[in-house]
Simulated scan of single mutants.
Amino acid sequence: MTDTITITGNVATEPEHKRTPGGVPITTFRVASGQRRYDRTTNSWVDAGTNWFSVSTFRGLAEHAFHSLRKGDRVILTGKLKLRQWETDTKKGVSADIDADAIGHDLRFGVSRFEKDAAASTSSEDGAPEHPGATEWTVATITDAWAAPEAHPADEPALVGAAIAGDSAASGRDDADTPF
């Protein structure tokens, strides 16, 4: 029996990429999902254990996961949970395996840049963005999790004010009816 599950955690192993004899791409890795709770007696956060999951991805998701994920990345993923019993000569246990349907970086802990797969891209022949008025963003890597992010163009008062006033040219948007 399989159940759908959504978890957040850290990629605990470097993703490993393989192909089946039939040529289907597979990427596998482990995810550690640490649990924390607030202890009112000590007025502090305490670790309450870690759940470990073996994650498998297939086909296009496998290709994208292999090129996008690295050990230590914080991710959110959803997929089908399978509990599998295992036994060796000295130990036995239960493994929690997930066949992932979707994976993304957890943006509470950093920044990420999405790039469409070239095969799925719908830009025009001259290379223009698929959405008129779209802005190209520069993404910086934040090494200090507590550092303030650099200013985002939408945070600029002139641009926000122009967007509220409906000035689509100044705000860089082509949908002047939308204030934000």
Rank of each mutant, 00 (worst) to 15 (best):
F58T: 11
F66I: 14
R36S: 10
D39P: 04
S44L: 03
K71S: 07
W45Y: 03
F66T: 15
T42E: 08
Q35E: 15
G34A: 15
R30F: 15
V31K: 00
R70V: 00
L69I: 07
R59E: 01
D39L: 05
D47F: 14
S44Y: 01
I76L: 14
S44E: 03
I76E: 14
S54L: 08
F58G: 00
R74E: 04
F53I: 15
W52F: 06
R30P: 13
G49P: 02
N51G: 13
T28E: 13
D39T: 00
T50F: 00
T41A: 08
A48Q: 12
T78P: 05
G34L: 13
F66E: 08
Q35P: 02
D39C: 00
A48L: 12
L61S: 09
S56N: 06
A48F: 12
N43A: 11
A62P: 07
L77C: 07
R59M: 05
H64K: 08
V31A: 02
W52G: 00
N51D: 15
Q35L: 07
T41N: 10
A32L: 12
R40W: 01
D47A: 12
T78N: 06
F53E: 05
H64E: 09
H67N: 09
D73K: 09
A32G: 08
N51L: 15
T42K: 06
G72F: 03
V46G: 12
A65I: 02
R70K: 01
S33R: 06
S44K: 05
T42W: 06
G34P: 13
G60H: 04
S68M: 00
A65F: 04
Q35Y: 13
N51K: 11
V31N: 07
V75D: 02
A48D: 14
G72L: 03
F58N: 02
S68Q: 10
G72Q: 02
A65Q: 06
G79H: 05
A65M: 09
G49L: 01
L61E: 00
S33N: 06
W52K: 01
